[in-house]
């Protein structure tokens, strides 16, 4: 699988990554090489194999549905890039 410049631009957009114009070619070469490595997977027939999502094949542990977290808004917002009146600020989204 070889990725074109347009493929890389699309993937970068999906991943919300700004990539400079001059770097796109390098990324398309690097990513194509990585995908060529990955495609060695196709050497093995896995049609009868169950996918493994967890190394110990266990299910998610459940706990009682009770409140365990306290409100720490001020602590968390102290490290935010921009806040005002307890709100995270971002550029205007609605006209």
């Amino acid at each position: 699988m070889s990725l074109s410049k347009a493929d890389v631009e699309k993937i970068a957009h999906l991943a919300r990554l700004a990539i400079s114009e001059q770097d796109i070619e390098l990324y398309s070469r690097n990513l194509s090489n990585i995908l060529a490595l990955v495609e060695q997977m196709n050497k093995v027939d896995t049609s009868a194999v169950l996918p493994m999502a967890h190394p110990l094949d266990t299910a998610q542990r459940l706990r009682d549905d009770v409140v365990t977290e306290t409100n720490q808004r001020e602590t968390f917002q102290a490290i935010a890039p921009q806040v005002d009146c307890g709100l995270y600020l971002v550029p205007q989204v609605l006209e």
């Binding site: 993937i11 999906l14 990554l17 990539i19 690097n30 990585i34 990955v38």
Partner: peptide, 13 residues
């Protein structure tokens, strides 16, 4: 990091 994010994004797309 960007390479790996993009490979992952592609593989999951």
């Amino acid at each position: 990091v960007k390479r790996r994010i993009m490979i992952g994004t592609y593989a999951l797309s």
